[in-house]
Design a protein around this nucleic acid. Structure first.
Length: 578
RNA sequence: CGGGGCGUAGCGCAGCCUGGGUUAGCGCGCCUGGUUUGGGACCAGGAGGUCGUGGGUUCAAAUCCCACCGCCCCGACCA
């Protein structure tokens, strides 16, 4: 690729709309351009990087027995109605306006189940792993961070079809294995977290996360022992509120002006761990009283999981008054005007000598004994884990980090096969629904996440496996020196002849411009051909990431380049949590 | 959808508020010629603008008013 004729519009300045580093660098290095919010064109260099990633994905998917398909993005809405996802996806699903009955597919469970229904009839047809690399359309309410959250993006999605839950376990493990290899080969430092199954239905689910400030997920990770979990399910080894030997008489006392736990702690000298914070939530239209210890923060995802519904929201002030007779900060489990279901955090299990609101503004109760004075309908893990809390496995301090979800593996079960009637006959002639799994990888996200993790102040630092090209050949003083011109041209030919993908900067730019563009684009190796190098019969090789330089005799260049590329390709130590 | 910000040349911005009238300006980039050539060179000349769109006020609008559109950020949402 000759730079002079290539379309590589590098930018010296940072476009103002780009916040995330990957977004800035993808624009500056000429990898992508925005077309509209959440919609990006991939330019030649960006597309080459994408193709490198897809190549790795294909190799690893094929290695676990995956068969590549190419499903349509245009889907009949009918199959989406059958699984109830027209409603559940809501605004996220793009509808075609001038053609009734078509939608743009945000994922392909329905299509897979449709074809499985057509042709998978016997247990002898199973198992299957079907995958594709295809464009997905999701009407994201808020696209952001460049290609990290777009309205259209490229996904490798695969679907396993099995005749049993044991078979699903095996397909799931194969994907787990393939994903570890894919992300490692793409040079990502990643970790795996257990995830909540959310609205997809199904049982087990794991997310492959790349730590980055541009991430949209929050995770708790332990540096010592490999514990990692999405904040939605993360736990920590915090102390429970100890049950004291004696419960004193329940007592209502005045607390004028007290609205927060800190008011109780600092204004009334009540230890924080003896405070029971009460929240009122509306769950599936009914009110539920929630008790947390002290300043613990409710995690709504955990609440959803505990109650088995996604419909939860904090009560409005009017609702609070109607159900408790008090305003926020003065509610509690004792003295409710009407009986409400009460769900308390595990940390408060069977605790006593607690202080909580009296359901009357300006009053609290003390000496509350949850076993004696209230009916707790359920204890559950409801609190949000905080930074520095002890790891549940090894008690080292947890870190709370932002992370990019680059992959997700999912045990779906039979939800989609049942909805679409995708059944098979087992060895006893019994008709049963196919057991499905679904597995996604965001291709653009791999590229962006890699850049988030592999850049310096000058630009991107690619590794050979996903670099757009391997070598950046820089010729200096091209127009002054025929020797340089001839040497560079010859080297360029030689490199490509030997299969080394080379970008040849044959522009008549100054050295500084060429060096800066080369560092910005960040191909793993830079070869510098200049008058002084040519004169001494050498070519200078610079490793982009480390900055190490080698002066190599012209005849040795290609083999040395090949050796260096091989060396730089050694899989980095990835953080893998099985 | 709620809150905030922005929209002026390819990119980054000033001008607007706080005097409505300027040839609408600066840096980078681009074109021509020349000098340069190891870390974003220099000189000279030049091209490039529906000031987001529509309406209103006014003798006169980039500037004031209204509406709309687009983009960005925070939040809500996110298999």
């Amino acid at each position: 690729m000759r730079y002079n004729k290539a379309f590589i519009p590098t930018l010296r300045e940072v476009p103002s709309e780009a916040q995330a580093i990957s977004h800035q660098l993808m624009l500056r290095a000429g990898l992508v351009r925005q077309l509209s919010a959440g919609v990006y064109s991939f330019l030649p260099l960006g597309w080459r990087a994408m193709q490198k990633v897809m190549h790795i994905v294909r190799q690893e998917m094929d290695a676990i027995g995956g068969q590549e398909f190419y499903f349509p993005a245009l889907n009949p809405i009918e199959i989406w109605h059958q699984t109830g996802r027209v409603e559940s996806m809501g605004e996220v699903l793009f509808h075609i306006k001038n053609r009734e009955g078509l939608v743009l597919a945000p994922t392909h469970e329905e299509v897979v189940a449709f074809h499985a229904r057509q042709h998978v009839k016997s247990y002898k047809d199973l198992p299957q792993i079907w995958y594709q690399i295809q464009i997905k359309f999701r009407n994201e309410p808020r696209p952001r961070f460049g290609v990290l959250r777009g309205r259209q993006f490229t996904m490798k999605d695969s679907y396993s079809l099995d005749d049993s839950w044991e078979g699903l376990d095996s397909s799931y493990e194969k994907h787990n294995y393939a994903y570890q290899r894919i992300f490692s080969r793409c040079g990502l430092h990643f970790f795996v977290v257990g995830a909540s199954s959310g609205a997809m239905g199904g049982s087990a689910s794991q997310e492959f996360m790349v730590e980055s400030p541009a991430g949209e997920d929050t995770c708790a990770v332990c540096a010592s022992c490999n514990y990692a979990a999405n904040i939605e399910v993360a736990r920590s080894a915090t102390e429970p509120t100890a049950r004291l030997p004696e419960s004193q008489y329940l007592e209502r006392f005045p607390t004028p002006g007290v609205h927060t736990i800190n008011d109780l702690v600092y204004g009334h000298g009540i230890p924080e761990e003896r405070c029971a914070k009460a929240l009122l939530y509306i769950v599936d239209r009914g009110p539920v009283l929630i008790l947390l210890r002290g300043n613990d923060e409710l995690n709504e995802a955990k609440l959803q999981a505990a109650l088995g519904t996604i419909s939860v929201r904090p009560a409005a002030p009017e609702e609070l008054r109607a159900y408790t007779g008090a305003t926020a900060g003065s509610i509690g489990p004792i003295g409710l005007p009407v009986s409400l279901p009460v769900i308390a955090d595990e940390r408060l299990r069977d605790a006593n000598e607690l202080v909580s609101g009296a359901n009357a503004d300006g009053y609290h109760y003390r000496h509350i004994d949850l076993m004696r004075d209230c009916r707790i309908d359920m204890y559950a893990d409801l609190r949000t884990v905080q930074e520095h809390e002890p790891c549940p496995q090894c008690r080292s301090p947890l870190r709370i980090v932002r992370a990019i979800e680059v992959g997700h593996i999912f045990k779906l079960g039979t939800k989609y096969s049942e909805a679409l009637g995708a059944t098979f006959l087992d060895e006893h002639g019994q008709e049963r629904p196919i057991v499905m799994g679904s597995y996604g990888i965001g291709i653009e996200r791999i590229v962006a996440a890699f850049i988030e993790q592999n850049h310096d102040e000058r630009g991107i630092c690619w590794i050979p496996s996903i670099a757009p090209l391997q070598v950046h050949l820089i010729a200096l003083g091209l127009e002054q020196s025929k020797a340089v011109h001839d040497a560079a041209e010859q080297l360029y030919q030689e490199l490509w002849t030997n299969g080394v993908e080379t970008l040849y900067d044959d522009r008549s730019e100054t050295a500084g411009v060429k060096f800066n563009d080369a560092d910005l684009i960040g191909l793993p190796l830079q070869l510098i051909v200049s008058p002084r190098n040519v004169e001494s019969g050498v070519v200078e090789i610079k490793e982009r990431r480390s900055g190490k330089r080698h002066h190599v005799a012209s005849a040795e260049v290609v083999p040395v380049v090949q050796r260096l590329l091989k060396y730089l390709s050694q899989e980095p130590q990835s953080v893998i949590f099985p």
